[in-house]
Amino acid sequence: MSFINYSAREINCKIVYYGPGLCGKTTNLIYIYKKTNPDSKGKMISLATETERTLFFDFLPLALGNIKGFKVRFHLYTVPGQVFYDASRKLILRGVDGVIFVADSQVERMEANIESMENLRKNLKDQGLNLDAMPFVIQYNKRDLPNVVPVEELNRVLNPRNVPNFEAVAATGKGVFDTLKELAKTVIMELKKKS
């Protein structure tokens, strides 16, 4: 959940990148890290295995700028995508303000996408959160590969609520900031609604 500090005049929000294993969550964060002004980012922390698979989470603090005299910071987290790390995924969702679901557009990963989406819904529910009622955007990643599912089909299967969705190639950065910007906007507007 957001943390508003009147004393330090700061607002902190937590954003989580979710999705099946190898869909490109960490790649999103790495690109954001590389392309962000050194003044506005902290260190990127990756708790990964020796083969660079996310073990617990990646973490990237991002200071975007000021709104009404308050410094706005987003803490970006990724979850480990591999199915057997479910206990860790649940923990990382704690206190989340908004979720970016990174889907792997390849035909053969469709089932993994669906499973991960169901897992996200269930893990949020366990914390008393409803995916349909919170800031949420979807990114269709790996659009440069030859065997991708058409976006209409992806939307039909993964996006019945018709939340904002973006085509992306995280490795080259295409769509990465569009996705983040849209979610950040929704998160801030949601905080406004609550205020």
Partner: peptide, 19 residues
């Protein structure tokens, strides 16, 4: 007595964050 800094935020404010 909402002192929340969010209360009067506009879409423009948010757009400016991303420069």
């Amino acid at each position: 007595s909402s002192r929340s800094p969010f209360a009067e935020i506009t879409e423009d404010d948010i757009d400016r964050l991303f420069g």
